[in-house]
Design a protein around this nucleic acid. Structure first.
Length: 483
RNA sequence: GCGAGAGUAGUGUAGUGGUUAUCACAGGGGCUUCCCAAGCCCUUAACCCGGGUUCAAAUCCCGGCUCUCGCACCA
């Protein structure tokens, strides 16, 4: 079993996530979050939201279903759909673009595509016979419902922000820079979704659109001096601080600011620094709306996988919507009037959630599995065990548990099986602390607290547990010398 | 989507034409046990779906769905 498979197995068994609709045979590209996964995902969302709230972000929540004019303006109708070619002899399918010679030009519609295929005598790369079939393949899901037509499921949440730009700006009292945030689903008709939460057709995204004055630097990077891995499009990997990357002109200052925010969020989620790198898109892989893009990638079994995309969308979206809708999308600042430029960090919440499990997974020397989750990302902050299920030890444990859960509901009680079995169970779901009541607890009001990674124990007064904030603190028990 | 392999309790598996469908872990109940998956007893729970061949199919054939790997795709 690869580590990926082991994590998948644990996630299914313990209820983090599993394939959707399995009683009807399942369908690829869709996953359910189980009880623990739901809690974990909530914690990722909270970490993300709080990070941007601290920067003064304003939020919005717009529909998944979006009418066609929005995507005409955004360019998705034109550019997000591909013209595909199919060989009628051997059945080979591919993007038509990939078969065309350099001098043919890119067809804008089916008619043009047919002409070009005819003119350049395009052949199938597999069997060599002439291509005769071309058709439109849209990566957006199109809805057909009664007399309502021309509706699409949005492929990104961003357009919901752009179309509301003026209203949001008004809410923000006209101030720029303005950071806007939207959490929600995006839908992409992936050709072959795979690998569980890594590649889905319905994805949970956290998107930020930062509207900026294009003439100045809008943010100051506060750098804690840690060196980060970059792979710029020169393909020469480098390690440096984010401020240094700006000084070296490897990346624009405001763009870099959001790389540093992203790095902080991933670190707050417990992802190890060595598992993170920022990779710059090559010019030929940039999407139709962006002029520069850096992906935060996370390492899995030696492969780097895009988890956050941080794109410089420039004035593309607002000027297109201004053009298509007739609404002015400008901002006044002093005697200047301009369309703000946009930096967009787009977070794949599902991938982040999965990588948190993957990155934190390890096996002890005895083979037992442990999720080394950050204390405030873990579904439960602590578990309560009675060492004995009798003589009032259980009653005491339960009564303290009931009291604590009023302060912090993310706690769990377990009295089943041996104590070792219970520790192991909590290790597998990443619970950082297990609190055990024994006969001494009855006599002197103390309990043992066992820390997940070191398995060390300390003894404290259980009354101290009732001090709030205990488990929300990243280091509630400094006695364990956690980092 | 193509090619190859695979789908058996919650999880991991045994089973090459006739089995009460194997085993382990997990789950539930009980006994025991004062600190790291101890032991014992009881118990829940599965052949991906549909068609075909056959007296008889988890097993062979066909189709579908799903998964894995490679290719392609990933705005």
């Amino acid at each position: 079993m690869t580590k990926f498979e082991e994590v998948l197995e644990l996630a299914k068994r313990r209820g983090f996530f599993w394939p959707s609709f399995s009683i009807y045979g399942g369908i690829s590209g869709f996953m359910d979050y189980g009880p623990l996964g739901t809690m974990l995902k909530d914690n990722v969302i909270r970490t993300w939201r709080e990070n941007y709230l601290k920067l003064g972000a304003v939020s919005i929540d717009t529909p998944n279903i979006t009418p066609e004019p929005v995507f005409r303006a955004s360019g998705h109708i034109e550019r997000f759909s591909d013209i595909a070619a199919r060989c009628s002899k051997c059945g080979y399918k591919s993007k038509l673009e990939s078969l065309l010679p350099a001098d043919s030009g890119i067809p804008k519609n089916i008619e043009e595509a047919k002409e070009i295929v005819e003119k350049y005598k395009i052949t199938c790369p597999v069997c060599g016979s002439r291509i005769t079939e071309v058709y439109d393949f849209n990566l957006m899901f199109r809805l057909n419902s009664g007399d309502v037509t021309n509706l699409y499921l949005r492929p990104e949440t961003a357009q919901g922000i752009f179309v509301n730009f003026k209203l949001l700006l008004n809410q923000n009292r006209g101030r720029i820079p303005m950071i806007t945030a939207q959490l929600g689903k995006g839908f992409r008709n992936e050709i072959s979704p795979r690998q569980g939460l890594i590649r889905m057709r319905e994805i949970f995204m956290g998107e930020i659109e930062a509207f900026l004055d294009p003439e100045t630097n809008n943010f100051k990077i506060s750098d804690d001096g840690s060196e980060i891995s970059f792979l710029p499009n020169t393909l020469k990997p480098v390690r440096m601080t984010i401020s240094r990357a700006v000084e070296d002109s490897m990346i624009n200052g405001d763009h870099a600011f959001f790389l540093s925010q992203t790095y902080n969020i991933l670190r707050s989620c417990g992802i190890k620094p060595e598992s993170i790198r920022f990779r710059q898109h090559r010019k030929d892989e940039l999407s139709h709306y962006s002029s520069d893009c850096w992906d935060a990638e996370i390492n899995m079994d030696g492969e780097w996988i895009e988890t956050v995309g941080i794109a410089d969308r420039g004035v593309y979206d607002l000027s297109r919507h201004q053009q298509f809708s007739g609404e002015k999308m400008t901002v006044k600042s002093g005697d200047r009037e301009f369309i703000p430029k946009v930096i967009e960090p787009a977070y794949g919440i599902d991938r982040i959630s999965f990588f948190i499990l993957y990155d934190s997974y390890y096996r002890r020397e005895n083979g037992f599995k442990v999720l080394r989750l950050a204390p405030d990302i873990s579904p439960y902050h602590a578990a309560f065990f009675p060492l004995q299920n009798k003589d009032g030890v259980n009653d005491l444990a339960w009564s303290v548990y009931e009291k604590i859960r009023e302060i912090d509901p993310y706690v769990i009680y377990d009295d089943a099986g041996s104590i070792g079995k219970r520790y192991a169970r909590q290790d597998e779901i990443g619970t950082p602390y297990c609190i055990v009541f024994d006969y001494e607890s009855k006599d002197d009001g103390t309990v043992t607290i066992r820390e997940r990674d070191s398995t060390k124990q300390i003894r404290i007064k259980y009354a101290d547990l009732e001090r709030a904030e205990l488990f929300r603190n990243r280091n509630p028990f400094p006695q364990f010398y956690r980092n």
